[in-house]
Design a protein around this nucleic acid. Structure first.
Lengths: 312, 312
DNA sequence: CATATCGGTTCAGTTTTACTTATGTGAAGA
DNA sequence: TCTTCACATAAGTAAAACTGAACCGATATG
């Protein structure tokens, strides 16, 4: 038996060997000779007080003690490697990796990317568009923009403008459907990506808030918000547009929000980054820029009344 | 900049120094001289490419890079140490640490402890009674008995007898309240510890299943199931008894379950242990013993009909 | 205002650890 | 049978980690 922690070099050798179930491969991974690795394992076993591997004919397998040690060892070294990478990234003031959902990336970030690049030519901005919620350390992410009701209090968080939904469409189509009531005959594009929000913020909820019976059938369905928006842009119908995603088109006149009322979603976009990273220059630059861009566009929707939370 | 992982001895030195914010204390913890520690930090910083500590007058503080590295480093080494301890424990065939909720510990395990000790005098059984769900590696736990609907599929799991609830009381009180209907006038002891189960398995649910209107008020409340059971044992009223917790008293006649129907809870007790540990002799012994004990007592409640899941 | 003290650093020398090259062993497969 | 493969062992060497003593600057103290 022994101390609180074994010799770390030997433990790392064990971890690689357990992962490959081969001393030779582990030795190659660590850039040492098989002899060195064999010796490390042996010394670790001596330290431990029992074999960690069973030596078979031309292979090795873990003993019970080895199987108990292996997962935690792998996990521990992975954690250390992630921490090291994270620390390394603090030294990099040139690049900034942002993760956001596909819709926000396509409809908010990408159209404004050029302006950010002009304002901060020294920063190399990278995107990682995914619905999967990333881990800052593991996935080498600096900043996340996420749509959610609540966020992890261990992170640096900044609420972006509150989110609501209202029907948006091309100006041509707006002439066709001048009132909320007239939407019953309109092709209503369905965006399934908001399904996870509770209370729901879908067509049924908006129409209910307007005291309008739901139509017998809906129009085309999309699983991602940006595709639904694209369909509306193409004149395919009316989409229940989320503020952040359609603001730019409203400002430019490509889409209009003809009705007076919007439905609060209860959720919003958040700016997220690790607390330790909140003062890194490129993160500060990005944060300031995103806040400025948001305040810039808020005038576009001043006219719209937000309906307090629906009951549903 | 550098490799995938820095020299581990240096990293460990950093971790201790970051935790204490003192090189001297860190050196003491690692049983080395301050000189050695200073050198390790310096070499780590060289490897990293930037300072990790700011040297102040008579103290040190973390730089931004240091703050980014420290939490992950601590976490990583903690994980490694936990894995090492877990592996060490596999070599110990004498002792067995079991965690369970307070009620199960008091009303099921403790009363049977003597029998287990007789059957396996070589095993030193330890208890860790807590509602907090433990981590096997971190908390040095071998086996957990937990009441839940579902369990982690990465663990070795064994479902214990299905759990239901039915009113139980002293024999004297059973004469007073011969039918479920008569319970409306009985002191109904409330056990709040089942609140987390869904669908709820409380008095309202049981009475509803019997088509009995809930009484205007309930009797004493307890936040833990064993205390509620104790109150019933003392003749303070009728408690909605969970099978596992009251079986022994039913078998011994201290309590009776006078009515024919029990309500299934949808949850049950589980035997849990890490997969790697499932064949350790004392765990096998404990598992076999607990299964045997359970099958032994099932005859006591043969008479009772279990009502399939309530609607609520 | 000296001066002791505290926390960290530097340096020279020593011990310990880690590694390589070369050789050995036993079982599987051509 | 005779390679070949995968690991073990041995001897020697390079590298690392550590110690003890001297050092440095800043605070605290009488």
């Amino acid at each position: 038996m022994s101390d609180r922690l074994p010799p770390l070099t030997a433990l790392r050798a064990f971890e690689a060997a357990a992962r490959h179930l081969s001393f030779a491969l582990a030795a190659a991974e660590l850039n040492v000779t098989p002899a060195a690795l064999s010796f490390q394992i042996k010394s670790l076993e001596a330290h431990f007080g029992a074999p960690l591997f069973r030596r078979l004919n031309r292979a090795v397998e873990l003993t019970e003690a080895g199987s108990a040690l292996a997962p935690g060892a792998t996990d521990g070294f992975r954690t250390l490697a992630a921490a090291w990478r994270t620390a390394q990234r603090t030294q990099d003031h040139q690049s900034l990796t942002v993760t956001a959902g596909p819709a926000f990336t396509a409809k908010w970030l990408a159209p404004r990317l050029f302006e950010f690049a002009q304002a901060h030519p020294e920063i190399e901005l990278r995107f990682s568009a995914s619905l999967r919620v990333m881990d800052f350390a593991r996935d080498n992410i600096d900043v996340a923009i996420r749509f959610a009701k609540q966020v992890d209090p261990d992170l640096f968080t900044l609420p972006l403008a509150e989110e609501w939904v209202t029907p948006v469409m091309t100006p041509a189509m707006a002439k066709q459907f001048p009132t909320p009531q007239s939407l019953r005959d309109a092709p209503l594009i369905v965006d399934d990506s908001i399904a996870f929000i509770y209370p729901p913020s879908d067509w049924n909820a908006w129409l209910a808030a307007m005291n309008i019976a739901a139509p017998a059938s809906f129009g085309p369905r999309f699983s991602q918000a940006d595709h639904a928006t694209d369909a509306a842009l193409a004149g395919a119908g009316v989409v229940l547009g989320r503020r952040a995603l359609v603001l730019k088109y409203l400002a430019e006149g490509q889409l209009v929000a003809p009705y007076e009322f919007a439905l609060a979603t209860g959720a919003r976009f958040w700016f997220l980054c690790p607390k330790a990273a909140q003062d890194r220059p490129q993160i500060v630059a990005f944060r300031d820029w995103i806040m400025r861009e948001i305040s810039k566009t808020s005038a576009v929707t001043d006219r719209i009344t937000i309906i307090a939370k629906h009951d549903a």
